[in-house]
Amino acid sequence: MNQRSLAIAGIVALALLPPALQALDQVFYIGFAARILIYAMAASSLNLILGNGGMLSFGHAAFIGAGAYTVGILAAEGVGSAWVAWPLAIVCAAAAALVIGAISLRTRGVYFIMITLAFAQMVYYILVSMKAYGGDDGLNLGSRSAVGFGLDLKDEFTWYYTCLALLAVVLYLLNRMTAARFGRALEAIRENETRMEAIGFATYRHKLVAFVIAGAIAGLAGALLANQSSFVSPKLMHWTQSGTLMVMVIIGGVGHRYGGLVGALVLLGLEELIAEFTLYSQLGVGMVLLGIVLFAPQGIAGLFQRSATRPLP
């Protein structure tokens, strides 16, 4: 099966999920599936810079937080329209990514990991102490954003299909982008930045553009996440959240076009499954992660098909 029919089959399967769950009287899992879709979006955005661009950002949760808090703060100020809040969430996250990226991308390797982490920590502590917007207690949205057209996002079906549609659009755009000159250049920079510079390519600017795009998508994911829980809190941008996103990407397959989706599905599914059998899910999750690193170095998606791009050196 080629990539296109695979993608279409995947979308059909995902589209049939809610009625199937309803038939089984398991409506709870529709919300759970929507959550996986949102995390898939966030992880895919990280995969763009981490997998395709080789930028190991340990602060990606900051952009999710920026998007989520944009929605949260607007809701607290009485602006509940998705048509205002979500684009603004994307813009805010992109702006944050522009500032953080512009400074962070001066560094390489481990230093880049740490400086992105530092920025995320700054955002985290500022929000924890910001009492006007709930501080550590977070902010309750009251209700999900309003979209009009007679649609109510509180309805689990509507919500799921909204998330699915947005994820499909994001994945489509990301795939187009990575297949085009932009993506090729990004991968070339990952493989040999000096060489790209030598042939006259503005590598810094190119990486920054990718970083901002990833931030913007993470912002949208953040806006959705805020709606999913009707709640935002600084925990959204705690460093462990950035770690979780990274883990999703690695599990799913670094640089693989569906790595983020697979990773989110496997990790969240695994946590849910293990939590069913034991209270101490962390031990099980830890063991499985370790197993994946040791025995499936290309991630899960890499086990099933040859990766479209080569793994990191």
Binding site: L6, G10, L24, Y29, Y258, L265, L273
Partner: peptide, 16 residues
């Protein structure tokens, strides 16, 4: 991965 997620969802639902 096409039907994987759906299957996983149903399996999860059945199991639980």
């Amino acid at each position: 991965m096409k039907t994987g997620s759906k299957l996983a969802g149903i399996a999860l639902a059945l199991m639980l």
